[in-house]
Design a protein around this nucleic acid. Structure first.
Length: 218
DNA sequence: ATCCCGAGGG
DNA sequence: CCCTCTGGAT
């Protein structure tokens, strides 16, 4: 549908003005660190993840050391990110997968990444895009899905179906930037609760059905 | 009470 | 398809 593609282009252009340098807000300085940080980011703010990763990477600086770590010790360090047992299990399994199948390096294809414990399509897209500069798809996280539904770019709540719509609407070379700007927009202007519609550059494109404006001023 | 840059398991 | 995992923030 050409009309929706034009709408998507308008949205992408305006977000590029407001969030020009939007990028991954997780702290990392290697692909290994980004994989770990992104696994931890599930149902958790990046800010919270950035609070625990320095300790994590200081104690277990590479896949080999992390694969040999005691689960209980890892759980202790990552506890505040929530889902700490499942996440610790994923981290150890992921580290083991990196060592066993990839010589301790992070693979650069979606198929290999998704095979690692704790790494789903969203995490794989983030890692490929931000650690390697590889465009593999649109990152559809909770923000991207919610905003694109509000704006009528997709009707799907399922992330895979939403992504299928978005990759058709947005030119391939804009996929990563579009993703990061939507995520930034979601964090700063259009969160699930209390969207700040009065300062949203997309307000005229948004139905805002049943959306309450932030803060009843008191 | 509901949401946070999800993923795995039944 | 659903359910579960979990602490922190609002």
């Amino acid at each position: 549908m050409a009309a929706r593609a034009a709408r998507a282009a308008t949205i992408a252009d305006r977000l590029a003005v407001v969030h020009p340098g939007a990028s991954c807000s997780l702290d990392f300085d290697s692909p290994y660190q980004l994989v770990i940080a992104t696994i931890l980011s599930a149902q958790c703010t990046d800010k919270r993840v950035n609070l625990v990763t320095p300790q994590l990477f200081a104690r277990w600086p590479d896949p080999r050391s992390l694969a040999a770590a005691k689960p209980a010790q890892v759980e202790g360090v990552i506890r505040s990110t929530g889902f700490f047992r499942a996440k610790a299990k994923s981290l150890l399994g992921c580290a083991r997968g990196l060592v066993d199948r990839h010589g301790g390096e992070v693979p650069t294809t979606l198929e290999e990444l998704v095979r690692l414990p704790g790494v789903g399509r969203k995490t794989a897209n983030v890692v490929l895009g931000s650690a390697f500069g590889i465009t593999s798809g649109v990152v559809v996280d909770t923000h991207v899905g919610r905003i694109c539904r509000r704006l009528g770019l997709t009707k799907h709540t399922d992330a895979v179906r939403a992504e299928r719509d978005l990759v058709r609407l947005v030119p391939r070379d804009h996929w990563i930037g579009f993703s990061h700007r939507l995520i930034e927009h979601g964090r700063t202007v259009c969160p699930a609760r209390g969207p700040r519609c009065e300062q949203c550059p997309l307000a005229d494109l948004c139905p805002r059905v049943g959306v309450k404006t932030a803060r009843p001023a008191r």
